[in-house]
Amino acid sequence: MYFLFTIIKQTTRNFLLTWSSQIFTLLTVGLSVLIFSFFYLVYTNVIDGAQQLGDDLRLTVYLDEQPGKELQEEYRYKIKKFDRVDKIVFVSSKVAYDRFAEQLGDDKDILNDMPQDFLPPAIEVYPIKTLDTLVRIKQFSDYLQTLPGVLKVQYGREWVERFYSFIQLLRIIVILSGSLLILTTTFTVAHTIRLTILGRKKELELLRLLGASSTYIRLPFFLEGALQGLLGSASGIGALYLLYNWMKLRLAGTTMVNLFSFSFFEPPIILAIIILSTVLCASGSFSSTRKFLHI
């Protein structure tokens, strides 16, 4: 117990000794966590949004003639062989005609002179609603095009491709901001710990002469780093939460908000970000003590 008391006392001393650097470190860690978690939050929400939009995503495969029962089964088999799908619906020319008429509403009279089988029969393929599906949809479309009797495959190609590029960009930003987080936390904390070590040089020399154990000398620095990570990341996440609520209020009622349902991180993700930052800062501190603290 006294061991813990003494170590905490030493850690507090370290904090007070270089308080200006400590504040700077906390701000840096907090800001890095804020930047990373902001983009990560956008990324996760966009992925969720993509899944919502994916509800309407389907590939329409136009056929040259109405397939019989056997051919339908063959189509089903070949489609499922390529990828998992939510459902496959065969639409006959008659059903396509009826749908079209329904879409036209009061103007359906214009179809009066048209034969009821003028629209080609089609297969509607509803992919599983995941981001991977969006990524692979072009491949899927190309595959469907190769099936016998297929005239044309249609899907929101332009939208999907743009969306995919956007997701890729977001991924890169998340990776970059994650790298920034790793670099800033590790190096800033290592630098602050180095300052603390230099500031306590005389004391550390004295502690060695008094027989202080390696744990007694090193542990407070390690704790200092971990504490910087804990407080910095907690404040970064706190700031993001405030920003999130502020944006939600500001954007309330806009098309964007109506289209997607934005949500904040689940508690396990918050915990993971805080633990990760704490571990990173502690490792920065550890590397600094290994380099500059010779016992």
Binding site: L209, G211, S213, S214, I295
Partner: peptide, 21 residues
């Protein structure tokens, strides 16, 4: 080094240059 630390806890040194903080 561990034993030296332990040993030094049993040695009280009054330094000529004091070594006070």
């Amino acid at each position: 080094s561990r034993k030296i630390q332990k040993m030094r806890q049993n040695i009280g040194i009054a330094h000529q240059d004091f070594k006070l903080l």
